[in-house]
């Protein structure tokens, strides 16, 4: 459904996106995972035609994006911000966005009714959006991009600032759309979202796609590393524990995330005694030690040396 090749974008001297490319098949949710400033929004903006590209090619359903309306009709965009008019009602907002995607008459009316029903806002259709809660606005923001039945739905961090209930409702809706055959591009910096929702994940950092695959494939890149988490009492541990851990033989990576120390070792059980004694010698007795399954956060840390939330 989507083919993006060699996308490039430069803002002045800064190269925001440097040759990003990926494909999304119908009925697939592709997650673009990366920290803030990694180039996710710029990539999605080029794919949807909001920003002109400095290089690369985008085609949707076999149609080049540069053909204009024929390609754009096939794309639904759900931006990171709430792109709704606060002084218009929910229905007026949806009618407006539907008209902008060439829906007219009864087709438009029924699409709006269905959309309001789908996100549980039918009874608030005549209320101004400015009176809605953040979660309700997010849900409406989402369906505004779906009214015209696009083949590709692009969502730029659609759950930012959303309560758990609305987040769950959004995920359920996206899974239903995926099951109906829609291709979905989903950007996020929440590892948990990418793990739960996405069939394939591309990890983006510094404007480059540094890894791509299913969750299982990405974690397999860690070469059977184990992650050991150490928590400390008192506020004195901090970065010092990170420096101590890195001196222990067998430790490949160590990262203090503000709450606990994450240590990656080639063989967790062999490394653990050395790690514990090093901490005790440094007067950093751990309050808790846990050996955990690696996740996408660990993949990102392994690939970049930084945590996703850095």
């Amino acid at each position: 459904m989507l083919i993006a090749e060699g996308l490039r974008k430069r803002f002045g001297d800064r190269e925001a996106v440097a040759g990003v490319g990926f494909e999304i098949a119908p009925g697939e949710i592709y997650g673009l995972l990366g920290p803030n400033g990694a180039g996710k929004t710029t990539t999605i903006s080029m794919i949807t035609g909001v920003l002109p590209r400095d290089g690369g090619r985008v085609s949707v359903d076999g149609i080049d994006l540069d053909t204009g309306p024929p390609a754009r009709r096939r794309i639904g965009l759900v931006p990171q911000a709430i792109t709704l008019y606060q002084d218009l009602t929910a229905r007026e907002n949806l009618l407006f966005w539907g008209r902008m995607y060439e829906l007219r008459g009864s087709a438009l009316d029924s699409a709006v009714d269905e959309a309001l029903e789908a996100v549980g806002l039918a009874d608030r259709a005549a209320d101004r959006v400015g009176t809605f809660s953040g979660g309700m606005q997010r849900r409406l923001n989402l369906v505004a991009g779906l009214l015209h039945g696009p083949g590709l739905l692009t969502l730029d961090e659609p759950t930012a600032g959303v309560d758990p209930q609305s987040r769950s409702a959004i995920f359920d809706l996206l899974e239903r759309l995926r099951d109906d055959g829609m291709a979905i591009l989903y950007t996020t910096h929440y590892m948990e979202e990418a793990e739960r929702l996405c069939d394939r994940i591309g990890i983006i950092d510094g404007g480059r796609l540094i890894a791509e695959g299913t969750r299982r494939e990405l974690i397999a890149q860690l070469d059977d590393d184990a992650r050991i988490e150490l928590a400390f009492t008192g506020g004195h541990a901090s970065e010092r524990s990170e420096a101590v851990a890195k001196t222990v033989p067998g430790v490949r990576q160590a990262h203090w995330n503000g709450e606990h120390l994450a240590v990656f070792a080639e063989d967790g059980s062999r490394c653990l005694p050395g790690l514990l004694s090093a901490m005790l010698e440094a007067d950093l007795p751990p309050a808790r030690i846990e050996v955990v399954e690696p996740d996408l956060e660990d993949v990102f840390l392994e690939l970049t040396g930084r945590a996703l939330r850095d």
């Binding site: 009709r73 911000a81 792109t83 902008m100």
Partner: peptide, 12 residues
């Protein structure tokens, strides 16, 4: 607010 970006992404 980003609504202009959304407008530009439309077929218009």
């Amino acid at each position: 607010a980003g609504t202009l970006a959304r407008l530009i992404a439309s077929p218009a």
